[in-house]
Design a protein around this nucleic acid. Structure first.
Lengths: 341, 341
DNA sequence: ATGTTTGATGTAAAGGTTTACACAGCTGGA
DNA sequence: TCCAGCTGTGTAAACCTTTACATCAAACAT
């Protein structure tokens, strides 16, 4: 009962009174078949409810029309909206989208690579910030398929990247704080390994230096981008008693941790301290105080990335190997004029 | 350069000095081939880096080992964690997971159904709360594949459902408010169409009735589960001047709207009003006041749903067509003792 | 009238598996 | 000695397309 034998191209051909080659052409290259014949075929298709078997087609054409999305964490607040963009563009061009949630587990990444080598996916979108593990160690030197990185560039490689201009965005964010009179500005979320963090720190430095503000290294704090890291970094500054008037955070999630720490110490925001995030994730507008931040055009990022990947896939030589979009300053209530101290 | 001709089963067979049938058996039914032969085949596979071509296999076996997930909105805060569960279980059983973001657009749903009829997916996970549009209107009466609903049951159908016991959970939530001395309890988010809302309202009613509290219909407010609906409903109650001491909301997103409305009116929570949510979405612990709510075991829901679907797919007769998991009361700071008024 | 081009269609191969069936050799029982 | 059953392997069909090549008729040019 499971399989009631779907109609094949042969059934259609029989009904229309033509050969299967003609049916195939009527579907894929309509101009190459006579009007009258095409009409008969179309009718036969409607009559049988025929759909072309994607497996047979993929087998023959050596192409699955599927894209694999490799993400370390599907729960990442940046993920879902980029995914919508990716999916929208893919489906518009009749590609399907496969999800691989790797949790940064090398075994799982290697596992998912087999979707490529077994022809189940033609291309790869990388959220991971690194090339998949397990690449090229099987004999046969498995070639990597066309790829595009998103969210985080792939460190030392020439994998095309689509994302926000993190340096520029962070510079704008810092400028905003400076424009509110802040001079002692902390940067929360320094990292030596994550490209995004590095760029955002550079933007911060550029802005301060551009305004002749000397950077106090004690105001730069390591962090891995989690809420807890933001909270801990803030606490640490209080313990050491080296305090800024404003916190520029590597992302919104970190900023949330900073807000939690400050609120716990009963400070009033933004009167006593200003906090700035980056990303504009969903809850940024719901926190109290609502978060001033830089908005990533996530939908657009997804669309552009998929567009680039499909271009690569279709063999078009692609001019730009890097698409940097602008982030937008969203002013809410977590940043204020510097308080006279 | 794209395709350097991958090794096929034939190459392996040649190297191992056996027929392709034997190679296939060595891979899929190892016990059926002699130890020595199997060793040679394994070696040949390693040597060539052979991976079986999934398209050819699927074509032959009439099975893609792919599951299609149909979701109206990938950004739904309940979605991502359930997805992780679904994906984890699927990948454990070596199924792949395809994402279909439909935005409730009938055309897109119908479009995705073609993944089924073209054999690109064997089964369906429904987040949508309804059967996909475009089912069965093509001639040939396209049979629906094995399906499991998640997040929201599929109204009037016998599609198996995996989720939380909404009635019971809501009853527990209401009981909690009652235990804090509340008698005038509002229910925000009534709906006549959404099964989840209906069940949660029933749980609310059951709890109140069980404690001999007569229900004031003016305290039951329609809502579609958005933040804005929660805000508007609350405002409306102030305008009519019919006020509860506690708000039981159909979900956390709605509760957030209620909190926003109350905070805007400068009420102090939970001293003056109590607010209770449902779902325990990520930001529930970050709102101020942090939200008391019922936690959905989302990971588990995903895993159970996929497990059920795969069982269905493999033809096992499944005992339970409905898996109801318990939700857990999470006490935070948005609910307090009723204030003497 | 002959040769050439064009357009529409058909024939058959190829794509890479799985698996029913056949076969060969061997074991063990009668 | 013969037969039955078992084990391990091979042959070939089937799964459903796409497409190179062949064919044929009609149109056109010479």
């Amino acid at each position: 009962m499971q399989h009631q034998k779907l109609a094949t191209i042969e059934d259609v051909a029989a009904i229309a009174g033509v050969s299967i080659a003609t049916v195939s052409r009527a579907i894929n290259e309509p101009t190459k078949v006579a009007d009258e014949t095409r009409r008969r075929v179309t009718e036969a298709i409607a009559q049988t409810g025929y759909t072309t078997n994607a497996m047979a087609r993929s087998l023959r054409m050596r192409r699955s029309n599927m894209i694999l999305i490799l993400a370390p964490d599907v729960g990442d607040p940046n993920f879902s909206n980029i995914l919508v963009g990716l999916e929208t563009e893919a489906s518009k061009r009749s590609y399907g989208v496969l999800i691989g949630n790797t949790q940064n587990d090398p075994a799982r990444e290697a596992d998912y690579l087999r979707f490529i080598s077994s022809n189940r996916a033609d291309g790869l979108i990388l959220f991971t910030g690194h090339l998949p593990y397990g690449y090229g160690n099987d004999a046969g030197e498995s070639r990597l398929p066309p790829m595009v990185a998103v969210n985080e560039p792939v460190s030392n490689s020439d994998v095309p990247f689509v994302g926000v201009d993190n340096f520029e965005g962070s510079r704008i964010a810092a400028e905003h704080l400076i424009s509110q009179g802040h001079r002692r500005i902390a940067f929360i979320g320094r990292s030596t390994s994550k490209a995004v963090n590095i760029l955002r720190e550079k933007g911060y430095r550029a802005a301060l230096e551009g305004h002749g503000i000397t950077i106090d290294p004690r105001l730069i704090s390591d962090g891995d981008g989690t809420t807890e890291s933001g909270r801990a970094a803030t606490e640490h500054m209080f313990v050491r008693d080296v305090l800024p008037t404003a916190f520029l955070c590597v992302n919104d999630v970190t900023a949330l941790g900073v807000i939690i720490a400050l609120t716990a110490r009963r400070y009033e925001l933004p009167r006593q301290f200003s906090v700035m995030g980056f990303d504009d994730i969903t809850f940024a507008s719901f926190v109290s105080p609502s978060l001033t931040t830089m908005k990533q055009p996530r939908l657009k990022i997804g669309e552009e990335a998929m567009d680039l990947l499909l271009a690569l896939l279709e063999g078009k030589s692609v001019a730009r190997k890097q698409v940097l979009l602008r982030s937008e300053l969203i002013v809410r209530n977590s940043v204020g004029q510097v308080s006279r101290s």
